[in-house]
Computed example of a mutant assay.
Amino acid sequence: MKTKLRFALRPLLAAALLVLGGAASAQVFRDNALQALLDAERHAELDRIALQRVTAQADDAQAVLALGLSALRGNDAPRREAAIQRAEACLQKAPQAAPCHYALGTVLGVHAMSQGMLKIAASVGTVKESLLQAMTLDPQWYPARSAVVEFYLMAPGFAGGSVAKAQEAARTAAKPEQQQALEARVALHEERFDAALKLLHELRPGADSALADDAAQWAAAAGFGLLKAGRADAARPVFERLLQQRPDQAIGAYGLARVATDANAPAEAVRLLQQSAKLKGAENLPLDYRLGIALQVQGQNDAARAAYDRFIKAGRGARSALDDAKKRLAALSANG
């Protein structure tokens, strides 16, 4: 059961890293102007300015980093490939640029996972070395260390993955609060959800919003882990806390909708899913799939069909959810 749950949780954890803003989406930049645009979620302007700067200077590490983070939004393979090429060009001119190592490692890692096992096998060494270089060159930069811990936990042993290595990277973090957060991430990987949540709830990230972002992501992942383990009552306060602390983010209401579904309260699930749809990060969640299920349970088949159809056409969900939505839509259509 434990092994099965771990493999089921991995795609959820990967999604969580992007849902709430990507790999430490806040406090990434040393450049205050770029950071301000990111904080304000003015992504189009950030991309435009970063592209102008990289075009003028290939080793503008902060601009390369901005375009790397941009490439992680959505599922755009050509955009990821362009970001990888820019990071490589930056490193040819500035091999000590930690942001360019970070951009190369993170974007190449996501790109390889989207391309299948052969691409993963061919790229994993570069991903590992790039992330380690970023952390070594700037050991106090939290996003790089967080990415290294994530790599060690998610990569198989033959590729250098190791819980022991992840724990060591966590223990040697620059600040106690970084160490605490990363130790929670290790506990989450080991499905020690209660231990992970205790560490995260006691965490005081201060002004480090990158750390706060990770803490929220990992708390959400722990909540979903509890749901998968059949512990909906334990998951409920996790999502209530997220909704209270981050009322503008979709994940809290979405998690509570999942709890309501497990509690056989489809009307409450529909209300929460509709609330979640209006909040930040909603586009990265399978809201229409879950909405279709909740509506179908209530016998609102026309509305359920419309929700499934939107989800399938968007094409952004997990393969298992897309396949199930197609089956449900076909069955509803067959029954009139």
Rank of each mutant, 00 (worst) to 15 (best):
A155G: 04
L153E: 09
L67S: 05
P205M: 05
V19D: 13
A66D: 09
L322S: 14
N284V: 04
K4P: 00
P139Q: 13
A170K: 04
R192D: 13
A112M: 07
T172N: 12
G157L: 04
R241N: 04
P99H: 03
Q178V: 03
S333H: 08
G252S: 02
K93E: 10
S123H: 04
L279A: 02
A307D: 06
G223K: 06
M113T: 04
E240D: 08
R192M: 07
A16E: 14
F311E: 10
E268V: 13
Q300F: 00
G74C: 04
S320F: 07
S162F: 01
A265I: 06
G109S: 05
L65Y: 09
N264G: 01
V64Y: 14
T55H: 14
R185N: 01
F311Q: 10
A181H: 12
L226D: 07
G161S: 04
A26W: 15
A250N: 10
A250C: 11
N301C: 00
A40F: 07
L12D: 08
L13M: 14
Q296N: 15
D248M: 06
N75E: 14
Q249G: 00
Q180K: 15
E41I: 01
S130E: 07
A263Y: 10
P78R: 08
I84N: 10
V54Q: 11
K165P: 03
D208R: 06
Q27F: 03
L132H: 15
R310E: 06
M117Q: 15
D302W: 03
V110D: 13
R6L: 11
L104K: 08
R79H: 05
I49H: 12
A267E: 15
D309N: 11
G336I: 07
L34N: 09
R328H: 13
Y102M: 02
L12I: 11
S114T: 07
A235Y: 04
L291I: 03
A321V: 03
G281D: 06
T3L: 12
A304L: 06
I49R: 15
S123I: 00
K313Y: 06
A304P: 00
L17C: 13
M1I: 08
G105W: 08
V107R: 10
D248R: 10
S333I: 03
S114Y: 07
Q296H: 13
A98Q: 12
L137N: 07
N335S: 15
A147T: 05
R310C: 00
A232N: 10
P156C: 02
A267D: 14
P176N: 11
A196M: 12
T136Y: 09
G116Y: 08
C90G: 05
A169E: 13
